[in-house]
Design a protein around this nucleic acid. Structure first.
Lengths: 409, 409
DNA sequence: TGCACTTTGGCAACAGCGTTGCTTAAGTGA
DNA sequence: TCACTTAAGCAACGCTGTTGCCAAAGTGCA
């Protein structure tokens, strides 16, 4: 790591603390404590962030006998990201601001079986529509002046992005390079930017079912739709939209979104029961992808030695047992089986929480949550179980694929 | 991260590359390529490392039409670590150099049931004996002059250690702080140190069964021996030996040692079948501990819904089924069950290799390896299965608990 | 009302990081 | 012998976070 990388690193550190502080904000001295940097260093860094339009002062704390601390906040409208959830039968596209708040949302049916070409046509249409229609207002509740809608196109790069590391591979297309920072630039530095430039769209995150090559942006095996295997989704979409594109598995994206959202525990599993059964794992705050983005293949865990055969070649796979129970209408039994799978995760990975999601779960959230809770309690595990209720959790997570690197995640 | 932390970080980066290069060594330009730093920066960093006695020049590569590259190597004898494996019925202590090579080894029976006091007496005795008897020679095959044996005692600190981060908690006792570096210091910088100071022992790593609080250095629950629960093993041992002590679960330590040893894949699971069944997980090169050091609890994975009851409150736990088969003398069946557990790991975590170890496995290594291999192959998983044959794998891993932070791991 | 005290946060000088530009060292090949 | 190539050190430099100092903006007591 060299000195510019150090600068990016610390800026991302501060930016992430601003993000997690949310609307409550955070003072310079708190930032210094949390980062381990000196107050003076934090002052310099936040001054740069304010000049770039990413942070703003927002009131003061009560005095404790001296000068009151100035509260700083992230300016969510300083950038936007597109999240695309490409499910087997539905396409969800949405636009979020820097804080991950959904600004605009579109949904339409789609059939992955039609093949990559027609489906990517649909994605392109939806994203274009989102960026022209949905681009009105949407500024956060900062009160520091509404910004105009996000501007389509590459635009200047935002924040730290040049540090070599395991971040998602962005590109080709317009790269998120070091370059000059976004916003009003180093011109008028005083206070909130008087005439903020249109906040650019930083990129497009795409979440798809099945394992894929996350770095190359190529699906590996979309079960049931072999025509997608190896299709260069990322490069093709980046070419069409003129924006950086990141690709990841649906459950991984959902887990990322939940990890960076509010009230996220350090380690948790997002268990998704929809047309299939999968999990997204977040360990110590970081999503676990695996070298082949294959991590989280919960559906084909053997939980019944010599049980009923599964299409994967195994026997007694969790997915088969669980979905069979669902098909029989025995939801409590399905919940019990799902609970056993969740308990295995909790014990193996020492995680703090289980989040359930997916269409089947959302059809009877309490049944599944209670069923899983009961299994865990029976094993003496106090791990809380909750339902991730937002139906667009995956699409929001897809947008976080773009946003996360800005915050050093 | 501040500037001194940056310096430590890059030094650790270079040191780790020197370590992995082993006896073959690595040139400055290769280091520059691999770290992303400029050749000049690498020159400065390696000059410091040579001045500290941690690295040395060792010959030249063949010329490719210009000045031949100078090969640099780690000086393994520049530091030593003690590894302690405290098993239920046996105590293994060993001394390694910086490269993790075992320099001296002691073994003796012990009974954890006697309680912490008497057992720690034994550990103290063994470590003292190791450091006085085993301290003769043992310098690596560097050919750069044999160093005298390791010197007991705190001595000056070695390498980077002040960076705040998730490294193992060392201490209290003599801290591995920033302080001046080990070796001849910035006096005579030319060539290999002419009269190297005795290489100090950097600390003691202890591996024990069962989950424990890794940061506090306190065992949580040593199954069958409740008298250990909550005993301050780390602090007590650090006080007696006057050395920093790090504590971890046995399987985690073994996995760490295997991860940092030669020929380690990026992600693997070390599956240990001895008096119990557990696993150490290494994902992307980093060991997974979990917040409560509970990760790797493979033994109580449910693989037979509604199967035979287990002492843990569950039914159909992998450990119960597997050990029952062993007790019946049906080793191939035990291997098949173990293979199913390993397959679950491979699929869930997208790992590259399965390493088997532990007393039961070592009693019939081929039976278990073949049995597990067969299960994986039947599921279409090409993941290689190997046996970690060294009986002191856990003790070596314990020593790596001390060494790993030096290399930024 | 006035003054001492506390706390925040910016300005300026500074040490030290990796980088850049250049030079020297040490080989190959015609 | 000489031109060329490659490796690696020296010196100057830009920029990082740090340190020392001081102004700003509050509280609290006389």
């Amino acid at each position: 790591m060299n000195v510019p990388a150090l600068r990016s690193h610390n800026a991302a550190l501060v930016l992430d603390l601003l993000r997690t502080a949310g609307e409550a904000g955070i003072s310079r001295l708190e930032l210094a404590e949390r980062t381990g940097l000196t107050p003076q260093a934090v002052s310099k860094i936040t001054a740069r962030l304010r000049a770039e339009g990413l942070a703003a002062e927002a009131g003061h704390r009560a005095s404790t006998g001296g000068k009151p601390r100035t509260v700083l906040r992230l300016v969510p409208s300083a950038g936007h990201a597109v999240g695309v959830h490409l499910d087997r039968d539905e396409l969800t596209t949405l636009l979020t601001d820097l804080a991950g708040t959904v600004v605009a949302l579109r949904r339409r049916p789609v059939d992955l079986g039609e093949g990559a070409g027609p489906v990517l046509d649909a994605v392109t249409e939806e994203v274009r529509a989102l960026l022209t229609d949905g681009a009105a207002g949407g500024g956060g509740p900062t009160g520091a002046g509404e910004s105009p809608g996000p501007a389509l196109g590459p635009g200047p790069a935002l924040g730290p992005g040049s540090a070599p590391g395991p971040g998602p591979a962005l590109g080709p297309g317009p790269a998120l390079g070091p370059g000059p920072a976004l916003g009003p630039g180093p011109g008028p530095v005083l206070g909130p930017a008087s005439t903020p430039a249109p906040a650019p769209v930083l990129g497009v995150g795409v979440a798809m079912p099945g394992p894929l090559d996350h770095h190359a942006g190529v699906p590996g095996r979309v079960t049931g739709f072999p025509s997608w295997d190896g299709y260069p989704v990322r490069d093709e979409l980046a070419r069409r939209l003129g924006l950086p594109v990141v690709l990841d598995k649906d459950t991984n994206a959902a887990a990322l979104g939940l990890a960076l959202g509010p009230e996220s525990p350090g380690s948790f599993a997002y268990v998704h029961l929809g047309t299939g059964l999968g999990a997204g794992l977040v360990l110590g705050g970081a999503p676990l992808r695996g070298d082949r983005t294959g991590a989280g293949e919960l559906g084909h865990q053997t939980v019944q030695l010599d049980g009923p055969p599964c299409g994967c070649g195994g026997r007694g796979c969790l997915e088969v047992l669980c979905l069979a129970a669902v098909a029989r209408g025995e939801l409590p039994e399905a919940a019990r089986i799902l609970g056993a799978g969740a308990a295995n995760l909790v014990r193996l990975l020492d995680i703090d929480q289980v989040l359930l999601g997916g269409r089947v779960v959302l059809g009877a959230p309490e049944v599944f949550a209670d069923g899983a809770r009961e299994v865990l309690a029976g094993l003496g595990l106090p791990t809380p179980v909750a339902v991730a209720s937002a139906p667009q959790a995956v699409a929001v997570g897809a947008a976080w694929l773009v946003l996360a690197p800005i915050f050093g995640q």
